[in-house]
């Protein structure tokens, strides 16, 4: 599965795009796409949303969690810095 993420223009915070085009901090509410191709129209719309977000792109999902090659990075984006937490963060997912 795929979802669309970006950083909010005003404060840079991580957001995910809902099906209605609204950006929210929660991944749960994000619109899901079967693959890159299915996400294309929504990503195009996101890229035009330059007054709301910066640099929208697709992430891979593994169930409810970020997956794929960038899973560590995306997990950190979703949950915040892991400093002070276990090194096994990535494996704990």
């Amino acid at each position: 599965m795929r979802a669309i993420t970006a950083n909010r223009l005003t404060d840079g915070h991580v957001v995910y795009r809902r099906a209605d085009g609204i950006w929210k901090p929660s991944l749960i509410e994000a619109e899901r796409f079967a693959d890159d191709r299915a996400a294309e129209p929504a990503l195009d719309a996101a890229l035009r949303d330059i007054l709301t977000v910066v640099g929208p792109y697709l992430i891979e999902l593994d169930g409810e969690r970020p997956g794929g090659r960038k899973h560590v990075r995306e997990a950190i984006r979703l949950k915040g810095p892991t400093t002070g937490t276990s090194l096994l963060y990535a494996q704990e997912r």
Binding site: N7, L9, T10, D11, G12, I50, G55
Partner: peptide, 28 residues
């Protein structure tokens, strides 16, 4: 100018970088 849309992110990025402003994982 960036917030009003007079500047695109591509135009704004080099300007903000000159002032030490990066966009990182969670925030600026």
């Amino acid at each position: 100018a960036r917030l009003s849309g007079a500047l695109t992110e591509d135009q704004f990025k080099p300007l903000r970088l000159m002032n030490g402003v990066y966009l990182q994982l969670h925030a600026y």
